[in-house]
Amino acid sequence: MASMVTLEIVTPDRKVLSEDVEYVGAPGALGEFGILPNHVPFLSALGIGNLHYKLGGKTYYVFVAGGFAEVSHNKCTVLAEVAEMAHEIDVDRAQKAQQRAEQRAQQAKEKLEHARHQAALKRSVARISCNRAGKDAGTC
C-alpha cells in the first residue's frame, strides 16, 4: 500500500513542481477536493485558488487558476493555466492588480466586462492569500 502521492504541477510554460507528497488539496471548479494515497481515479476542472500539499509535517501552497487535475495510480497531475509557488508571488503586484480590478469592476457597465474584472479580482486575492498562507506555515 503506497503512503505517498506523486504531485506534478505543469503550466504551458514550465514544470512548477514534481514531488512525492502525503496529501493534496485543490480548488476544484465545484469545490475543494483532497487526495490521499490510493485515491480512486478521477478528473476535475480547477477553479481559482490555493492548492496545498503536505510533506514532512509541513503544508506548502501553490496558487492555481484554471486547468485540470487528474488522479490515477497514486499520481496527481495538475495541468494549470497559471501556477505559482507561494514564495514566487509578487505581493505588491498582486495588491496593485486587486486595486485595479476593484476599480474597474465598479466602473464596468457591461456584464461581460464586469465578469472579466471580477475574475481578475479573484485571482489577485487568491495570490495574496496563497503567499500569506505560505508565510504563516513557514514554507516561503
Rank of each mutant, 00 (worst) to 15 (best):
residue 64 V to N: 00
residue 119 A to H: 13
residue 117 H to N: 14
residue 119 A to I: 10
residue 24 V to C: 03
residue 51 L to T: 02
residue 34 G to Y: 03
residue 27 P to Y: 03
residue 34 G to A: 04
residue 69 A to L: 15
residue 87 H to E: 13
residue 14 R to F: 03
residue 23 Y to Q: 14
residue 24 V to K: 06
residue 96 K to F: 07
residue 34 G to R: 06
residue 82 V to D: 06
residue 106 Q to G: 13
residue 9 I to L: 02
residue 27 P to M: 01
residue 66 G to W: 02
residue 25 G to Q: 11
residue 70 E to Y: 09
residue 111 K to A: 14
residue 66 G to T: 07
residue 85 M to N: 09
residue 55 L to Y: 09
residue 91 V to C: 09
residue 43 L to P: 10
residue 32 E to L: 07
residue 78 V to N: 00
residue 92 D to L: 14
residue 81 E to Y: 11
residue 20 D to M: 12
residue 7 L to H: 07
residue 84 E to C: 08
residue 95 Q to A: 12
residue 16 V to P: 10
residue 113 E to I: 06
residue 95 Q to W: 06
residue 10 V to S: 02
residue 93 R to A: 10
residue 64 V to R: 00
residue 113 E to V: 07
residue 91 V to F: 08
residue 118 Q to N: 09
residue 19 E to C: 10
residue 85 M to Q: 10
residue 92 D to G: 13
residue 107 Q to N: 08
residue 24 V to H: 01
residue 117 H to C: 09
residue 36 L to Q: 03
residue 69 A to S: 08
residue 42 F to T: 04
residue 104 R to C: 02
residue 45 A to R: 14
residue 81 E to A: 15
residue 14 R to M: 02
residue 79 L to V: 04
residue 96 K to S: 09
residue 82 V to L: 11
residue 102 E to I: 11
residue 28 G to T: 03
residue 91 V to K: 15
residue 103 Q to L: 15
residue 18 S to L: 12
residue 26 A to H: 04
residue 22 E to R: 11
residue 76 C to F: 00
residue 19 E to A: 14
residue 113 E to G: 03
residue 112 L to W: 14
residue 93 R to W: 05
residue 57 G to T: 03
residue 86 A to F: 08
residue 119 A to T: 14
residue 78 V to F: 01
residue 53 Y to T: 08
residue 106 Q to T: 08
residue 92 D to N: 15
residue 62 V to N: 02
residue 116 R to I: 06
residue 66 G to F: 01
residue 119 A to M: 14
residue 97 A to D: 01
residue 23 Y to G: 08
residue 90 D to S: 10
residue 29 A to I: 14
residue 82 V to E: 12
residue 74 N to V: 11
residue 14 R to S: 04
residue 94 A to N: 04
residue 39 H to F: 05
residue 68 F to K: 09
residue 93 R to I: 02
residue 24 V to R: 01
residue 8 E to D: 13
residue 113 E to L: 04
residue 56 G to P: 06
residue 103 Q to I: 11
residue 10 V to D: 03
residue 110 E to G: 15
residue 11 T to L: 03
residue 23 Y to A: 13
residue 92 D to A: 15
residue 60 Y to W: 10
residue 20 D to K: 15
residue 31 G to C: 06
residue 8 E to Y: 05
residue 66 G to N: 05
residue 106 Q to N: 09
residue 9 I to K: 02
residue 68 F to P: 00
residue 107 Q to S: 10
residue 38 N to M: 09
residue 86 A to T: 08
residue 46 L to K: 08
residue 29 A to P: 09
residue 107 Q to V: 07
residue 66 G to E: 00
residue 67 G to A: 01
residue 60 Y to K: 13
residue 60 Y to I: 04
residue 39 H to I: 06
residue 8 E to A: 08
residue 106 Q to C: 01
residue 90 D to A: 11
residue 96 K to P: 02
residue 107 Q to F: 06
residue 73 H to G: 09
residue 44 S to K: 09
residue 58 K to D: 01
residue 91 V to P: 12
residue 15 K to H: 10
residue 115 A to G: 11
residue 10 V to R: 05
residue 50 N to K: 07
